[in-house]
């Protein structure tokens, strides 16, 4: 598994706060047994209702970064939401704050979610809207976003940041390393051993 030290590319800005995962991928697209093809349905209903939605704007095709607002990805735990964004092309997300399950899903996929101040989240979105060709860089090591003449400091929680930098964001093999300790913990739990005396 590879380390994620930085993500480079153009950025697509997304106005609004509290954008839930039902809006990122409506439930009807969850009737599937594979994540393949979900990229085409990112923000499907929002795009239909709002012709000016940035995911309808071809100039943003090929963007690797998504700039958002507050509490992005709230609601349903569906990994289909970050999977659809990732399959659309998004490799990192920067915003004021993220819902925790969404953040955890992105971490497990190797997609960093970095937080910044409310003011800087607005500055970034305005910069990406003003110049759709601007290249941005999320530096996971230095915890900054640079581009369009800006340098913005961002935050990634220590454990998640270490997982990206070490390339251990796909946790399965790391968790399996402790297989003896897993069994010891299980055997120490009264409900596993049947509440014996």
């Amino acid at each position: 598994m590879s380390a994620v030290t930085k993500v480079t590319g153009r950025a697509i800005p997304l106005p609004g706060d509290d954008i839930d995962t039902d809006r990122i991928i409506p439930a009807r697209y969850l009737r599937c047994v594979s994540f393949d093809g979900l990229g085409a349905y990112a923000f499907e209903d929002d795009r239909r209702q709002n012709p000016d939605h940035n995911f309808n704007d071809d100039r943003y095709n090929g963007s690797s970064l998504l700039f958002c607002g507050r509490n992005f990805g709230c609601g349903s735990s569906r990994e289909h939401a970050p999977q659809s964004l990732n399959r659309w092309g998004i490799k990192a997300i920067i915003g004021e704050s993220f819902a925790e399950i969404f953040f955890g899903n992105c971490l497990a996929m190797g997609v960093p979610c970095a937080t910044t101040s409310a003011a800087d989240a607005t500055v970034l979105r305005e910069a990406a809207a003003k110049d759709v060709t601007a290249e941005f860089v999320l530096d996971v090591v230095g915890q900054t976003v640079t581009g369009a003449g800006l340098t913005i400091s961002v935050g990634i929680p220590d454990g998640a940041r270490a997982a990206f930098l070490e390339g251990t964001w796909n946790a399965t093999s790391v968790l399996l390393d402790a297989s003896d300790a897993i069994d010891r913990t299980a055997q120490s739990l009264p409900y596993v051993t049947g509440f014996g005396p």
Binding site: S77, E79, G104, N105, A171, L175
Partner: peptide
């Protein structure tokens, strides 16, 4: 608590989460 699909994989494989 709720988890996503990659974490379901982790629980199935290890009975653990990070």
């Amino acid at each position: 608590f709720g988890i996503g699909t990659s974490q379901i994989r982790d629980v199935l494989a290890t009975q653990c989460l990070a």
